[in-house]
Nucleic acid binder design. Structure first.
Length: 428
DNA sequence: CGGCGTTAG
DNA sequence: TATTCTAACGCCG
């Protein structure tokens, strides 16, 4: 059997790179992108990393450095990033018959059809095309397992000598092991902080020492995830390419508010808004949800105010993707956990116990009106179409409110250059 | 089976 | 003034 050839494509500092595509002036400057409410740093350019700005750091903790070094700061613009991601994935799909889109900025390609000696050139060609067609720089790691291709990609980012592509097939085992010695064990994909803490007393500190250890012992001492990582380091592929996109098992929509909410009515607006969005996602993957959970809580970081956090769950008699069904239940649930007098800071909804639309139809004969179900489905389809074409808030439910003054604050969001005609880039 | 912890991006 | 959001999986009781 031919060995697998995995190529991991990882976009460099993805959100920052997206902003730089449309803003040439900041291409050599330190740049960061912030999370919702402009609170935490979620993406950094290399220059920003060099200034010591850490991932996940609250903005207020690095405000001094940001001012002093004129760091360009952006709110996150997910419409832009998702659209750029779609374009990149479309380019990648031309280079392989099996593409696994792993995240918004990462994908694996099966390169088994490419001779090992050609893989580096092939990777360079992928890189050139993505850069030319989208403006986004990428790193490519090529190896016989997913974990090794992750490490190859990491080495590419650490060492500019690789010029964006590293093919581990081109190296001897001794040479690969030498590189693995320089990778800390917690930087191996699947080994996080906690597992690394348990491995270190056993003398396992690097990717190389993990590779040298006995995978059965690792399995018992830690867990199956660490065992798989060990085997993959040894070149034994345990993590296959997963090209078939599986529907989500649960869908969560939650937000920290732009300000404190005390009023039940405003909490209703928030829960309603998140519920509408969650059911849209359920419909997009052609599922129906049976279980609805909601939660609300105060700001756990604020020691000065009394804390309150509750969640609750209910199950629909029949799974549904009809927004009013979920919305009514969510609001009823909210009434059961709301307590007046608290400063609420965050709320969310979690939908689960999915069924496919196809399965439900066969289960349903005789249980309830199929006719009514089909009318509801068509109504939701129209709503989705209108909102898809004219913007997310074109057709809303009354409970969502009109002002939504509690919603997230974004002071520095760039234009949605690629998805809104009225925000398209103009050249003068 | 539900709750919790860990990992990841 | 101020601390993201989402998802999967495995372990444990």
């Amino acid at each position: 059997m031919k060995p697998h050839v995995f190529a991991l494509v990882d976009c460099n500092n993805f959100y920052v790179s997206c902003e730089r595509v449309f803003f040439a002036e900041i291409r050599q400057h330190p740049v960061i992108v912030l999370s919702n409410n402009d609170s935490c740093v979620v993406a950094r350019s290399n220059e920003a990393k060099a200034l010591g700005i850490a991932m996940g750091m609250p903005l207020f903790k690095c405000q001094r450095v940001v001012k002093q070094h004129h760091v360009a700061v952006f709110s996150s613009n997910y419409a832009l990033y998702q659209d750029m991601s779609d374009r990149i994935m479309a380019v990648l799909s031309r280079f392989t018959s099996a593409l696994e889109i792993y995240s918004i900025d990462e994908a694996w390609l099966d390169l088994s059809h490419v001779p090992a000696a050609q893989c580096e050139i092939y990777g360079q060609e992928i890189r050139r095309c993505v850069l030319q067609e989208t403006g986004i720089p990428i790193s490519v790691g090529i190896a016989s397992t997913k974990v090794l291709s992750k490490i190859a990609c990491e080495l590419v980012k650490r060492h500019s000598i690789f010029q964006g592509v590293l093919n581990l097939f081109a190296w001897s085992e001794e040479e690969v092991d030498a590189w693995l010695t320089g990778i800390a064990v917690e930087d191996v994909w699947g080994i996080g902080k906690q597992l690394a803490t348990k491995l270190r007393p056993a003398g396992i500190v690097s990717a190389h020492t993990l590779k040298q250890s006995n995978h059965v012992w690792i399995r018992h001492y830690l867990n199956v995830a660490a065992q798989r990582a060990t085997l993959e380091l040894q070149g034994i592929s345990c993590l296959p390419l997963e090209t078939r996109k599986k529907p989500r098992q649960g869908i969560m929509v939650s937000r920290t508010f732009g300000r404190i909410i005390e009023d039940l009515h405003e909490l209703e607006e928030a829960i309603a808004t998140y519920a509408v969005s969650a059911v849209e996602k359920v419909r997009r993957q052609r599922s129906l949800a049976r279980q609805v959970s909601i939660f609300i809580h105060t700001n756990p970081f604020d020691r000065r105010v009394p804390q309150y956090a509750r969640s609750t769950t209910a199950t629909l008699p029949v799974a549904s993707a009809f927004t009013p069904d979920i919305l009514d239940l969510a609001i009823a649930l909210l009434h059961t956990i709301y307590a007046p007098g608290y400063h609420y800071k965050k709320a969310g909804i979690f939908l689960s116990e999915f069924q496919t639309q196809e399965m439900l139809q066969t289960d349903l004969f005789g249980i309830f009106s199929l006719e009514r179900y089909m009318i509801q489905e068509r109504l939701m389809h129209v709503v989705d179409e209108v909102n898809g074409t004219w913007g997310r808030h074109t057709l809303c439910f009354g409970t969502q409110g009109m002002k939504r003054s509690w919603s997230i604050r974004q002071m520095r969001r760039s234009q949605r250059y690629t998805t809104r005609w009225n925000e398209i880039l103009t050249v003068s």
